[in-house]
Design a binder for these strands. Structure first.
Length: 569
RNA sequence: GCGCCUGUAGCUCAGCUGGAUAGAGCAACGGACUUCUAAUCCGUAGGUCGCAGGUUCGAAUCCUGCCAGGCGCGCCA
C-alpha cells in the first residue's frame, strides 16, 4: 500500500520537475503521522521542493496533487500545515490486512528466502572459554540471536558463528588453574596464584577430570609435553560444554564454533603474515608508549606492525609479540579474512563495549586485505548493570561474588531475560533488576506482552465455548471495524512488516520489543472498551478475525525475540 | 590528553537518515472486576529535550564548542 502511494506521488513529482526544467531527483517518502487527524500517510515533498521551484510549499503541494493518479484505496487528500500532503485511505481497504495476516500466519512480515539470498556471517558471544558467562555476555547473546532471527525473516541467509579464543595466554592460565585444582584434590598443597581463575567451577571440573584420568599415571608422564596438552584440551572442552549449556538455556544455538587454535595450527596466520610482507603492508618498527596512563616498564621493542594507519587507524598495530608468537589481532585478521574467503562479504560482529577501541583496527585490516569497506559491521553492546531491588549487585571475580548468566536465567526465566535485554538500544546501558524481572506486573514488559497474547487466546476459547464458529476469513466484513481502537490495531499490524524491515536493515532488534509493547497496549485498550463476542454476528466475526490477527502478529514478533507466547497465564 | 557511546518527565527509556501539539512504562493522585483473564484498563499531574552557539521555512534530531557519566587507549583477549 505504502509503496503504491509513493509510486503515484513520485510519478507526479517527476513530471512536475521535468516541466519546470529541474534536473534533480527527489525521492518521495511517506510517513505515518502521529496524529490521526493528519490522515493515514503524509508526504513532505512539497516543502523540500519549494526551495528549488521557488514557490510557496502549499502552492507546490497543489501543483503535485493536481496531477496525481491515486490508487482506488485512497479516499481523499488534503494540504495541511506548512505544506504537508495528507492522504486518507478508505478504511475497509486497510482492515483487509487482517485476512492476509490470518492467511499467511507465521509468514506475515517475513520475506521469502530466495536463491540468491545475501549471505551474512553473524558472529556473537565469542566469550573466552575460561569460565562461566556473565550477564554482559548474555545481552550480546540475546541481541545476536534475535538479530539473526530478524535477518533471516527478511530474506538473508544467516550463518551464526562463535569464535573460540582457545589459544593464547589466558588459556594457559586456565589450564594451570585447573591443574592446581587437580593437584589439590590429589592431596598436594598448592595455592592458586594471583591472576589464576579462583571460581568454584574449576573444582568441579577437576573432580570430573580425575574420574577420567588417574593422577598417578599423569604424574609419571612428561608434564610439559604430555600432561599439559591433555589438561588444556580438557579444560577448553569442559568450558565450551558449560557455555553451550548456558546458551541452550536461553534457546541460543550456533551454526559453527570456530576455533582460533585451528588458525594457528593450519598455518593460516603465518601465511597471512608472509603475504603481508610481500604486499608491504607490514614493517618492522617500534610503537610509541601508550597514552593516558603511566607506564613504568615501557621498553621500545622492534616488532612487526600492520600499516593500519593507511586505512583509517590512529597507530599501526603489532602482529607479533616479543617472543615472536602472533598477537590476538593477527589471529583475528586471519579469522575475518577466512570468513571472507568462505563467501561472506557481509559480516556482522557483536562485541562488548569494552572492545570499542578495537573496531577501527579490524576494519582497517579487513579493508586492506579484502577491499571491503566498513566490514565487519560491529555492534557494540553496552554494559549491563545488575541490581536486586534497586541495590547494585556487587561483583568481584576475586572475591568469588560473581553472578553468572546461568544463575540469572535460572532465577528469573529465559523469557524475562530475553525480553528485558531487548527493550533497549544496544548503545544504551541496561539496568537489569532481578526482582523486577521476576515480578508478574506492569514493571515487567515481558508479561505485559505475553498477557495480551494469552488474552486473545482466552477470547477465542470463550467464543468456542459459546458455540461461535469462525467463518472463512474471506467472508468477514472487515469494514465493520471502525472504532478508534480497532483502527489503531489495524494500523499497527499494517506497520509490522515495515518495522521488521527497519529492524533488519539498521540492526536494531530492540524495535521488535518496543513494537510488541505498543501493540499489546492497544490490544488491552481495545479489550476494555469493546466486546468481541456479541449478538451482532457480523461484528463478532470481524472482531474475532481482528484479534486472531493481533494474536498472530504478537506470536510472530515474540518468535523474533525467541520468547514464548503462552496461550494461558 | 585522545577515541567511541550516552545525556529527553522524580526514575527507566522511546522518538535521532530534520517535520505538524516531544511519547510510553514505573513511581504519585483519582477512578474501573455480577462481563471474553484486573498479570488489565481509564483519567489527572508531571518537560529550560545537559549548556551555548550555528545551519533553515522548520532542530530533541544535523554541525561546532563546552559540561557530566560509561567504556577503552603497550607485544590481554
Amino acid at each position: 500500500m505504502k509503496q503504491s502511494l509513493e509510486n503515484a506521488l513520485q510519478h507526479a513529482v517527476d513530471q512536475l520537475l521535468k516541466e519546470n526544467g529541474v534536473e534533480a531527483e527527489v525521492q518521495v517518502q511517506l510517513t505515518r503521522p502521529k496524529q490521526k487527524q493528519h490522515g493515514d500517510y503524509a508526504a513532505n515533498v512539497a516543502m523540500s521542493l519549494a526551495g528549488r521551484l521557488n514557490r510557496e510549499p502549499r502552492t507546490v503541494a497543489e501543483m503535485i496533487l493536481s496531477s496525481v493518479e491515486w490508487p482506488d484505496a485512497v479516499e481523499g487528500t488534503e494540504i495541511a500545515g506548512p505544506g504537508f500532503i495528507n492522504i486518507r485511505l478508505k478504511h475497509a481497504s486497510e482492515a483487509e490486512v487482517i485476512k492476509k495476516i490470518v492467511r499467511q500466519g507465521r509468514a506475515y512480515g517475513c520475506v521469502e528466502l530466495s536463491e540468491g539470498a545475501e549471505k551474512v556471517n553473524l558472529e556473537f558471544v565469542s566469550a573466552n572459554p575460561t569460565g562461566p558467562m556473565h550477564v554482559g555476555h548474555g545481552r550480546g547473546a540475546v541481541v545476536g540471536d534475535s538479530l539473526g532471527r530478524i535477518l533471516t525473516s527478511q530474506g538473508y541467509s544467516v550463518h551464526r558463528e562463535y569464535y573460540i579464543n582457545d589459544a593464547g595466554t589466558q588459556i594457559g592460565v586456565l589450564a594451570s588453574s585447573l591443574w592446581k585444582r587437580v593437584e589439590q584434590q590429589a592431596g598436594i598443597d598448592v595455592e592458586l596464584s594471583d591472576g589464576e581463575y579462583p571460581g568454584e567451577y574449576l573444582v568441579e571440573v577437576a573432580r570430573e577430570f580425575l574420574e577420567q584420568y588417574s593422577f598417578e599415571d599423569l604424574d609419571e608422564m612428561d608434564h610439559d609435553r604430555e600432561v599439559w596438552p591433555i589438561v588444556i584440551d580438557y579444560a577448553i572442552e569442559k568450558m565450551m560444554e558449560m557455555i553451550q549449556n548456558d546458551l541452550a538455556a536461553l534457546g541460543i544455538e550456533f551454526d559453527r564454533f570456530f576455533s582460533e587454535k585451528t588458525l594457528h595450527e593450519s598455518g593460516k596466520i603465518t601465511d597471512l603474515i608472509e603475504q603481508l610482507k610481500t604486499d608491504d603492508l607490514i614493517y618492522l618498527g617500534t610503537l610509541p608508549p601508550p597514552k593516558g596512563k603511566e607506564v613504568k616498564d615501557y621498553n621500545p621493542v622492534e616488532q612487526w606492525l600492520f600499516r593500519t594507519t593507511r586505512f583509517g587507524d590512529d597507530v599501526d598495530r603489532p602482529l607479533a609479540k616479543k617472543d615472536g608468537t602472533p598477537t590476538y589481532f593477527a589471529a583475528d585478521i586471519a579469522y575475518h579474512v577466512d570468513k571472507f574467503e568462505r563467501g561472506f562479504k557481509r559480516q556482522i560482529d557483536i562485541w562488548g563495549a569494552d572492545h570499542g577501541g578495537y573496531v577501527t583496527r579490524v576494519q582497517s585490516a579487513v579493508k586492506a586485505l579484502t577491499g571491503l569497506e566498513g566490514q565487519p559491521e560491529v555492534l557494540l553492546v553496552q554494559m549491563v548493570n545488575l541490581t536486586r531491588g534497586g541495590e547494585q549487585v556487587k561483583m568481584s571475580k576475586r572475591a568469588g561474588t560473581f553472578v553468572t548468566l546461568r544463575e540469572v536465567v535460572d532465577e528469573v526465566g529465559a523469557d524475562a531475560v530475553r525480553f528485558n535485554f531487548m527493550t533497549r538500544r544496544v548503545e544504551s546501558q541496561l539496568d537489569f533488576d532481578l526482582e523486577a524481572a521476576k515480578q508478574k506486573s506492569d514493571e515487567n514488559p515481558v508479561y505485559y506482552v505475553q498477557y495480551a497474547h494469552a488474552r486473545v487466546c482466552a477470547i477465542l476459547r470463550k467464543a468456542g465455548e459459546e458455540g461461535v464458529v469462525a467463518v472463512e476469513a474471506e467472508q468477514v466484513n472487515s469494514s465493520r471495524l471502525i472504532a478508534d481502537e480497532e483502527k489503531k490495531l489495524v494500523a499497527l499490524m499494517l506497520s509490522y512488516p515495515e518495522m521488521l524491515d527497519k529492524a533488519a536493515n539498521r540492526h536494531e532488534a530492540y524495535r521488535v520489543a518496543v513494537y510488541l509493547m505498543d501493540i499489546a497496549r492497544s490490544l488491552h485498550g481495545f479489550y476494555h472498551k469493546h466486546r468481541v463476542i456479541s449478538s451482532d454476528e457480523e461484528l463478532t466475526q470481524a472482531r474475532m478475525l481482528l484479534v486472531t490477527a493481533v494474536g498472530q502478529v504478537i506470536r510472530n514478533g515474540l518468535l523474533m525475540l525467541g520468547v514464548s507466547a503462552p496461550e494461558r497465564m
